[in-house]
């Protein structure tokens, strides 16, 4: 019996290891390629370790690689994305939390219908929104600006964030709200003093989700931006598609890593809360 279970355990770990390697291989290739020189890339093999580590490609990707006609690297795009993602995540998360609080704890006549309509927003393909959204941004005078992108991401993210918070808050007993009302607390006081302090897991989930969605978005970034307001995903695309005499794989790889870095950092910092948040409802029952 013991031998048999040990055998199967070994098999399971073996399979897991192979799958992990399979998933990590692209990252390995990107990392090693980004620190190789072009000569080494031409001479060597895709999987070989770098002989001579150089960060020249990183530096070029950051500050001097050409994206189309202008050659300032990814840096301006990166800061555009930062300027876009921080307010967009903050606003959509806060609004989602308040929405979820109202839809779960302060239900009004028709609130279920409102929730169903918001839920519908989760399933809408964003391509459908492009034209009407462009008109809306024009009317508001926010076309082709970072604030316009923030607006688009807030509107499109609200459905998900509302859903997250509403489902989390449904699990909080109504008696807590009743007790707080009898204690003399009103709508906002209950929200800030009772509900929000209980929301750490779902706040983390929502922030990670929204950050990843907005940072990695390409569609809105390419449609609703101008030269000055392009986010990093568009910059990366332009960088990789700008053809010069030679294809600089190391610069492309470094640029892709730069573009992916913030989401990786967010996952590493908050990842354990992410898993905890996703399973919190199940455990509390």
């Amino acid at each position: 019996m013991a031998d048999q279970s040990k055998f199967w355990r070994t098999v399971i770990y073996g399979v897991l290891f192979l799958v992990a390697v399979y998933y990590l291989l692209p990252l390995y290739v990107m990392l090693t390629t980004s620190v190789k020189s072009m000569d080494e890339i031409r001479a060597g093999n895709l999987l070989s370790l770098p002989l001579d580590i150089t960060f020249a490609a990183w530096s070029k990707a950051w500050s001097s690689a050409c994206t189309g006609v202008d050659c300032g690297g990814l840096a301006p795009y990166f800061w555009n994305s930062v300027m876009m993602v921080i307010p967009a995540v903050a606003i959509s998360t806060v609004l989602g939390a308040v929405n979820g609080y109202v839809l779960s704890k302060w239900q009004f006549r028709g609130s279920e219908v409102v929730f169903a309509m918001i839920l519908f927003g989760v399933f809408i393909p964003f391509q459908v929104l492009l034209l009407p959204m462009a008109q809306t941004l024009g009317v508001f005078g926010m076309a082709s600006s970072i604030s316009g992108l923030v607006f688009v991401h807030v509107v499109c993210g609200l459905a998900s964030t509302t859903l997250f918070f509403r489902n989390y808050y449904v699990g909080i007993p109504d008696e807590l709200i009743k007790a707080a009302r009898l204690d003399g607390a009103g709508f906002w006081r209950i929200f800030f003093r009772i509900i929000l302090p209980m929301s750490t897991p779902i706040l983390t989930v929502t922030v990670i989700w929204q950050f990843t969605q907005i940072w990695n978005d390409f569609l809105f970034g390419v449609v609703f931006s101008s030269i000055e307001s392009r986010p990093i995903t568009v910059g990366l695309n332009n960088l990789a598609n700008t053809s010069t005499s030679v294809k600089e794989y190391n610069v492309d790889m470094a640029a892709a890593l730069i573009a992916a870095l913030p989401t990786i950092v967010v996952y590493v910092l908050a990842g354990k809360y992410f898993v905890r948040g996703l399973t919190a409802g199940a455990v509390k029952g």
Binding site: P173, E175, K178, R193, P197, M198
Partner: peptide, 10 residues
């Protein structure tokens, strides 16, 4: 209350 409704974070 039946569930006591104590504020869990306080």
């Amino acid at each position: 209350f039946q569930s006591y409704a104590l504020y869990p974070t306080m």
